[in-house]
Design a protein around this nucleic acid. Structure first.
Lengths: 207, 207
DNA sequence: AATTGTGAACCTCTTCACAGCT
DNA sequence: AGCTGTGAAGAGGTTCACAATT
């Protein structure tokens, strides 16, 4: 399949949510222009993004909201269930377990690992914290496909290396540094500090 | 000043962290090649990013780590203190207050606002939760410059409109939808679901 | 000899504009 | 008449490659 840009994928996620809200409002048909307006992009962008994957609209009429949402859901693989391991039971880790949104979308946190002996055996929402040293067998046993890394920066690369050696191919990294992964592994970074620093930059230089 | 791309700004944040780690390791001089290698970009990219703001290196020698870190810190405005209001004392809000990293970097959460009467008066780490209805005067009194929005999607646009009317020009949004802001306001989105969905896409289509 | 700083070439993503359906 | 789908044009970002400097 042709290489699709990251920006296209993240816009598809946004259209998907937008369609969800439109459907809640009983809207049955929508034009690329309307989606574009809601999500702050151009209508050509919306049509181009969709065109990489097929033709989902009717000329002259627009898109059926329910159909388009299902099509995007399929493209993104959102109707599957994904088993997730979360490494690091600190503040961020805890918030992520609490955050119900993931579960609703099919990302199931099955495993909670930490290296701190004090934390092992404790539970967060019915999930018991287990030792990171057991990662390899637990990840296999629980058929985990996605890892969320919420550990301090100085151990993050080691944790990721270990995860990759157990066969994990998709990682969401919260540690504030760039991690090295082989090119068959996808890693996405979530870094609140970087976004805050972008705000700092704009306040400093634009005003 | 020439328009600098968002990607340049976020790479500068990453170089800044990398330089911090190098300095901890007593490294005094670094080449664009070494920074590039650590952060997974090309050396030309590093030099080009820096060139928008000045010339910080010595040909043949590279960059002094401490000087370069300070220069980038100044560019990003990281040596200022920023007063931050956090709207929404739910899971994410709570984790953000707990997360000590912000404070270290000069982002001071001064104000915690929520609309839930049950929560008002409660404290998180010495910060009392106050009513969002008081936003306007509290934001002015506390000289707040940055708002972090961690409220449910369906109220996020109203919250943001209210914040903008009080004069806020920089917003970090955790609600999973696109928000409309005037063009003199900077808004950055932090959306874990979108990154997870990108992982879902890659697992679904690449394997 | 090594490494920066940068114009030019290159590549990728976005927007335009219009033919083609409904 | 209205709106999609898309090739072509345009804009923007990245990499190349080399003169300039230490």
């Amino acid at each position: 399949m042709k290489k699709i840009s990251d920006s296209t994928i993240s816009r598809l996620s946004r259209y998907y949510r937008t369609l969800g809200r439109l459907i809640e409002q009983r809207v049955q048909t929508v034009s690329s222009d309307e989606i574009a307006e809601i999500d702050g992009v151009t209508s050509a962008q919306v049509r181009k993004d969709l065109s990489f994957f097929g033709t989902f609209g009717k000329r002259g009429l627009g898109y059926n909201t329910v159909d388009l949402k299902n099509n995007i859901g399929n493209i993104l693989g959102l109707f599957k269930k994904w088993n997730v391991v979360l490494i690091g039971a600190g503040n961020i880790g805890r918030a992520l377990v609490d955050y119900g949104e993931f579960k609703k979308q099919g990302f199931l946190i099955k495993l909670l690992l930490d290296s701190d002996p004090e934390k092992i055996g404790m539970k967060i929402h019915d999930i018991e914290i287990q030792a990171f040293s057991e990662a390899s067998q637990l990840i296999k046993k629980n058929k985990i496909q996605i890892a969320i890394v919420a550990v301090p920066a100085y151990v993050a690369q080691d944790v990721v290396d270990e995860l990759i050696s157990t066969g994990i191919k998709a990682i969401l990294n919260f540690a504030p540094l760039s991690l090295k992964v082989p090119k068959d592994v996808v890693i996405k970074n979530e870094n609140m500090s970087i976004e805050l620093e972008a705000l700092s930059y704009h306040l400093t230089n634009k005003l």
